[in-house]
Computed example of a mutant assay.
Amino acid sequence: MLNKEELKKLFENGDIPRQEDFWQWQESYFHKDDSIPIEHIAYDFTKKADLVDGKVPASQLPSYVDDVLEFGSYAELPQTGEKGKIYITTGDNKQYRWSGSTYVEIDNTQLGDYIPYEGADRTVNLNSQNLQNVKHFYSHSGIQDGTMGLSVINDAAGGFKSNLLIKVSALAGNMLTFTVKLYSYPYEFYEFQINLYRYQENHHEPTVNWKSGESTHIGKIEFYKDPASGDFYVLILGSQLGIFAYPRVAITDLQAYLGDQTFNKDHWKLEWDADASSLILHSATLSEHFKKDSRAVSTHTDQTISGSKTFKRDLNITDDGLGINFEAGNKIYKKGRFRTNL
C-alpha cells in the first residue's frame, strides 16, 4: 500500500489519475463503518481500567478517588493500610483508619460536634448524628432555634416613607407573635409587638402591644388578606405627626406554633410606601388602642417632680433640717441627710 507522499504524486497538477490510483487512495483510510484493527491503534492498553460488573475495581482507581473501602470483616482488611482512607467492615458496619502501624476504630459519636463547611472536599452524612444543638440558619438575617426566631427579616430605605407593609408568614393554625423594631431619622425609635392567630383562612382579633417610642407617631396599624394567595399582611401607617425618614426596620423575636415555614425569611416581605388597594381589609387598630402596661404607664406619668420636692401618687418628701422625710399614707420614714439637686 502506498504511503501519503506516494499518493500525493498521483494527484499532482496535470496528472490524469487512473481507477487504480483512486482505489489506492481510498484504501489508505478507514471508513466510519469499518472496525479499526488493534494493531493500527497506537495506545498502551496495559494502562486501561477493566470493568467488573460494569464498575472499575477500587484497585485500579487513583488513591484520591476511592477514600472509602469496604470489606466483609476485620480479618479481610489489607495487612498494611493507607493513611487518608476509611475502611468499612460491612459485617458489623464499623469504620477504621490506618494509624501507620495498626487499624484504629472510628467512633461515630465523635462526629457529633462537627458540621461540614462550605468548600469541604468530601461529603459527610450526618443523618445518624445528634444535631439537637444546631441552629437553623436560613440566611444572614434568619436564625431559628426550635420555635423561636431572631431577626427574621430586615430592610432599610432612603428618603421619606408614609407606610410599611409586612407580608406575614402565617400558616393555617398558626398562633404567632413578633416584634417590629422601626428606626426613623433623627433619633426616633418605635418598638411594638404584633400578635396574630390564623384560624384556617382568617385572622382572629390581632392585637398590638406597644413597647417603646412615641406611639402617636403611628397613625394606625391595619391587617389585610390577599384574596388571591390567602397571605396576610400588616400595614403600618405614619400619623400626621410623623413620617418615617430614612427608616430601618427589623422583624425580631418571632415565636410561632406550627410550621418551619414561618421562620423562613423567604416567606416574609417588607415594602415601603405600599399600595394595599388590592388587599382585603380585615381590621384596624388606632394608636390609642394599642395595648400597654397601664400600671407602669400611670406610675411613671404621675411621678413627676415639682419644685417642692413632691412626688405625686401620695408620696411627699420634706426636709426638716435633720434629714429627709418620706411620707406615704399615714407613715413617715426618715433618711439621713444627703446632697440633692431637686
Score class of each variant (00 low, 15 high):
33 D>H: 11
58 A>V: 06
25 W>P: 00
50 D>P: 06
35 S>A: 12
27 E>H: 04
52 V>L: 10
45 F>R: 15
20 E>R: 00
38 I>M: 13
49 A>G: 02
43 Y>T: 00
33 D>F: 12
57 P>S: 10
48 K>S: 05
31 H>S: 14
23 W>Q: 14
47 K>G: 13
42 A>N: 04
16 I>S: 06
35 S>F: 15
35 S>G: 07
25 W>E: 01
21 D>A: 03
21 D>T: 01
39 E>T: 10
45 F>T: 12
33 D>M: 09
27 E>Q: 07
41 I>Y: 11
45 F>C: 04
53 D>T: 04
17 P>V: 02
27 E>N: 07
44 D>P: 12
14 G>I: 01
39 E>N: 13
60 Q>K: 03
18 R>Q: 03
21 D>M: 06
23 W>I: 09
15 D>W: 00
21 D>H: 07
32 K>F: 13
47 K>D: 08
16 I>V: 12
42 A>Q: 07
20 E>C: 02
15 D>K: 00
50 D>Y: 11
36 I>E: 04
50 D>R: 14
32 K>W: 11
53 D>Y: 13
44 D>E: 07
23 W>R: 12
21 D>S: 05
55 K>S: 11
58 A>C: 09
18 R>N: 03
24 Q>K: 10
35 S>I: 09
17 P>H: 00
25 W>R: 02
52 V>H: 02
33 D>N: 11
20 E>S: 07
18 R>S: 03
14 G>Y: 06
23 W>G: 09
16 I>W: 09
42 A>T: 01
44 D>G: 01
28 S>M: 11
43 Y>A: 13
41 I>Q: 10
15 D>E: 03
42 A>I: 05
30 F>R: 14
32 K>S: 03
19 Q>F: 14
24 Q>E: 10
24 Q>I: 09
27 E>T: 07
15 D>H: 00
54 G>D: 10
54 G>H: 10
30 F>C: 09
54 G>P: 03
20 E>Q: 03
34 D>K: 08
31 H>E: 14
50 D>F: 13
25 W>A: 09
27 E>W: 08
34 D>L: 09
21 D>L: 03
52 V>A: 08
58 A>G: 08
46 T>Y: 13
37 P>K: 08
57 P>I: 06
54 G>R: 05
46 T>A: 13
27 E>G: 01
55 K>R: 15
20 E>V: 01
32 K>D: 00
21 D>W: 01
